[in-house]
Design a protein around this nucleic acid. Structure first.
Lengths: 340, 340
DNA sequence: CTGAAAGCGCTTACAG
DNA sequence: CTGAAAGCGCTTACAG
């Protein structure tokens, strides 16, 4: 069958209507489950659709109705399991509403992100869930407003005049610091990595505030490499300072994984020689040894919340902007002990 | 601005044409970078597009040309980092060709997969990359053919009359078995889990063949729970048999992670008391201790290959079906030693 | 409940 | 190089 013939082969709503002996309008009503159609007629049309192998053409419909049933999701990357879980939550909710999600990664590059937003607009997405690339200018907010495109920010924010769903990083940090302090730790380091963005800043501020409110020195901020593979070898950075920490809070799952490995490589026993607290607590956290005490931010739930928010935003663009912050919980396992 | 006014606001190609004092046809030619347009005219039109904030409407264009620039990707789940890496490869290549990918997960449920395929057809996807849900009937192949939809199977296959990209599981298994045998192991177990599908079968067959060709007993197939969280507690299954293995090959990354943790919980030293080999070797593999010797299947590369194949398939539907199998490599680290 | 008609935003011959 | 026109597959009043 040549592509010429194939084209003619396409079954259209008009074909269905003729086959069922009704008008195109009626067939269209059946399609959209209108109550205006009699049940006998309805059945006849539905049979015709089945017989002919009719497939609804959403693209054509979209040209009339302003709804593409497509939403976009832009994340910095896909290989970090944290984002994979986030996406899983997004897909779950969006899929359940009958919509479809276009996925793209920005690589934390602003120009790439700009290109992706344009491409998504060209595809007429009904809205997008955006985890803004690091260093995104806040002017992006004005652009988005001018485009009149529903957007919810996830995990990171550039403007609170736009919907935002994230985690309560400040509380998470306080939970971690309080727990370590209760064990008797005073020299607590915060092991960070990656580019600076709102979530980065919130964690750092949260750490600082939590330390200060306990009268502890909040200045032990130690930077690790961005790539997971390089973190373990950089473990010595923890001990290069005049004062040596007795406990370390990790910026995220990757840092926790890397340091957990690196400390073992140094011959240290985690929980005895040094206490370690993870952050994000993705599924793998359960599976490393010693079991990692970790602050859970709930990426799947955040993805679900963001998707629901976007759906509501699309339904009612006049809604005031909302800010949803998921609670964090400290999962106490085995990686912390008293200082020695 | 009400939604009424907004609709009128939409800038169309006709607006651009008028603004630039050309016909709609000419504006369209500029859009598609046709050489038929003089450079002076081209510039004028491009300026008009910028001035007016014109956004190309791919959906409208699609109604005429049979190309949506959308491709679909269906995977069993997103939280398994293996699939996340696969997707990353797919998105990379598809994005680079200017197309966009619709993402969905089947949850390894055949009906869900069917629904997703229909939804994607309604969106007029140019093709889909499908990791078939476990227990997919091979009749799906006939359906897909009847729909005349370009599909490449990835990781799992239901028919070789359709493009397929996967890993060379048989060789991977042989590499693992040969390595263990060279260390002196004879009682080697294969720790499997999850539903049965072609990739499962190929690994099991590969294990069996590799064992047999070395004159070893291939019957130690041990089933573990599907959920990562439950694997560690099930570690005892390794020792419930009359003959106790001295080495274990893991079905995939999840099993490796779970058993690595579980063996440590049992107080065993991996590499001394028992040798362990992982499979898939996703990014995390580098970060567990003891370092896991593992067969790498290269999910990112597989995703890239699948995307390229689909692009070629779309360009030329008459191409004979192809079967691409990515080489595996054994990464020797620290989790294996001599039997004792 | 149904039919005829207009229109969504583009592309594509066809004439000039 | 340009203009006028038809058509892609749908939805939506409007009249009956």
């Amino acid at each position: 069958m040549s592509s010429e013939e194939r084209k003619k082969t396409r079954v259209t709503l008009l074909d269905v209507a003729r086959h069922a002996n009704v008008s195109r309008a009626t067939a269209s009503l059946v399609l959209r489950k209108s109550p205006l159609v009699g049940s006998e007629t309805r059945t006849r049309v539905e049979e015709a659709m089945r017989d002919l192998g009719y497939v609804y053409n959403i693209g054509a419909a979209r040209l009339r109705v302003e709804r593409s049933q497509i939403i976009g999701a832009i994340v910095p990357n896909l290989t970090n399991p944290f984002f994979a879980e986030l996406l899983s939550g997004i897909e779950e909710i969006i899929g359940a509403t009958g919509k479809v999600v276009i996925l793209a990664k920005s690589g934390d590059r602003v120009e790439q992100q700009e290109m992706l937003l344009r491409r998504m607009r060209e595809h007429g997405v009904d809205g997008v869930i955006l985890c803004p690339a690091a260093h995104t200018e806040s002017t992006l907010f004005e652009q988005i407003t001018a485009w009149d495109m529903p957007v919810v920010q996830v995990l990171r924010h550039i403007s609170f005049d736009m919907d935002y769903v994230g985690a309560d990083y400040a509380t998470g940090m306080r939970q971690a610091v309080d727990y370590l302090a209760s064990l008797g730790h005073e020299r607590i380091a915060f092991a960070v990595h990656g580019p600076v963005h709102s979530a980065y800043q919130e964690r750092v501020d949260g750490f600082r505030d939590a330390m200060l409110s306990r009268g502890l020195d909040p200045s032990m901020l130690i930077r690790f490499p961005t790539q997971l593979g390089e973190i373990a070898q950089a473990t010595h950075l923890l001990f290069d300072r005049a004062t040596r920490p007795t406990a370390v809070i990790c910026f995220n799952h990757l840092v926790a994984l890397g340091l957990s490995a690196g400390l073992q490589d140094c011959g240290l026993t985690i929980g005895r020689d040094l206490s370690l607290i993870g952050f994000d607590d993705v599924a793998d956290a359960e599976a490393i040894r010693p079991r990692l005490t970790s602050v859970s931010t709930g990426p799947v739930a955040i993805g679900e919340m963001a998707a629901r928010l976007l759906v509501e935003r699309i339904a009612d663009p006049a809604l005031p902007p909302r800010r949803l912050v998921n609670d964090t919980t400290l999962h106490i396992r085995q990686s912390c002990g008293r200082p020695n």
